Amino acid sequence: MDVFMKGLSKAKEGVVAAAEKTKQGVAEAAGKTKEGVLYVGSKTKEGVVHGVATVAEKTKEQVTNVGGAVVTGVTAVAQKTVEGAGSIAAATGFVKKDQLGKNEEGAPQEGILEDMPVDPDNEAYEMPSEEGYQDYEPEA
């Protein structure tokens, strides 16, 4: 019985440690998101679009440190934060509304985080759909 109880105690310690790591990862992701939003706020009209992409990228980098179902929630929060940063930029006159959601080359930025393969159960990952990809044929 002692062996059984000791095993359960060790398992509990492992769960607590994993929860603490997840909590730490979420806190880091939130900190990076805040950094990115402050970065966007300090940019001029020309830099705002690039700044919004930076927020998304920093958040995406930190999301990889967070495991399990938390990833889905962090990704949703990050996307809403990026959308909010863009709205703030438009409201303050840093950028025109028609410039939001495009990178410096004018290509749409939507789907940055949505296409990231995420499995809350950590069982399997699927690649994003290939609808947006084109076949590449090298020139002879």
Rank of each mutant, 00 (worst) to 15 (best):
V3H: 04
V3Q: 03
V3R: 15
F4K: 00
F4C: 01
M5Y: 03
K6T: 03
L8C: 01
S9E: 14
K10M: 14
E13W: 04
E13I: 04
G14L: 14
G14H: 15
G14N: 08
V15L: 09
A17N: 08
E20F: 13
T22E: 00
T22K: 00
K23H: 04
V26H: 00
A27D: 01
A29M: 13
A29P: 00
G31I: 04
G31V: 03
K32D: 00
T33A: 05
K34H: 04
E35T: 11
Y39D: 01
Y39V: 05
V40N: 00
V40H: 02
S42L: 13
G47I: 09
V48R: 01
A53M: 14
T54I: 14
K58Q: 05
E61Y: 05
Q62L: 07
Q62H: 07
V63F: 10
T64F: 12
V66H: 03
G67H: 08
G67Q: 08
G67I: 13
A69S: 06
V70R: 01
T72W: 08
T72S: 13
V74Q: 01
T75N: 07
V77P: 02
A78E: 01
K80P: 02
K80L: 13
G84R: 11
G86R: 07
G86A: 07
I88V: 04
A89D: 03
A91S: 04
G93L: 07
F94P: 03
V95L: 13
K96C: 15
K97V: 15
Q99R: 06
G101Q: 09
N103V: 13
E104T: 07
E105T: 12
E105S: 04
A107G: 10
E110Q: 06
E110T: 13
L113F: 09
D115L: 05
D115S: 05
M116F: 08
A124H: 09
A124Q: 05
E126Y: 04
M127C: 07
M127G: 03
S129A: 06
E130A: 06
E131V: 11
E131A: 12
G132Q: 10
Q134A: 06
Q134Y: 08
Q134W: 09
D135F: 09
Y136A: 05
Y136L: 09
E137A: 08
P138Q: 04
A140Y: 11
A140H: 06
